[in-house]
Amino acid sequence: MCSVCEEEVVVMVPARRISRDEFAAIVKKYMKNAYFTALGLVGNRDDALELSQEAFILAYRNIRQLNSNRKFYPWFYQILRNVCFSHLRKTRKRQRFSLEELQGQEPSAGVDDCFTPHVVAERNEAKDAVWKAIGKLDDKHREVIILRHFQHLSYEQIAKSLFCSKGTVMSRLYYARKRLKELLSTKKGGDRDGV
């Protein structure tokens, strides 16, 4: 996976449409970052593939909005996160409606149930539990965990990607990790109760 930290500025000539080959080169450079970030945000492979590709299509259509002195990935990341969060909002809304219709019956799977551990490499119980707990975090808290732990971005890079200060990044990480800790300890407690 290429490091988004060492990326160069993609030089765009204003009012010029990018050629197919130029855009193909950009996609090939960032597709893994885009796919894995989307996977971290939405939790399953099919959606991650679909949404990351959709984000590239939107980027292609709007590439003229990218100023010549801006880096591609932070700009693209805004599109990617909007696409993923919008997908999650729609999924949640659909589930709320279907839940209202099915009142009294078994509830359907929640968004966090999309975070199945099948996508985790070299699985074990602890890793599965962490992945499931990440799926239960709020969107903005899950986002910082994904950017820090899965994309290995520095605080500076996370701040640039999210258009916020480093202080906000530290604060979000604190609450995200605190919540993660609570979710994992609840699970441990639940498992013990079940034994």
């Binding site: 796919y35 894995f36 996508v119 490499a121 070299e122 602890a126 890793k127 990790r177 800790k181």
Partner: peptide, 14 residues
């Protein structure tokens, strides 16, 4: 401890 276990979680390469 949490950071250590979270860092161990890697995702399957397609």
């Amino acid at each position: 401890q949490l950071k250590a276990i979270t860092d161990q979680v890697t995702l399957v390469e397609p």
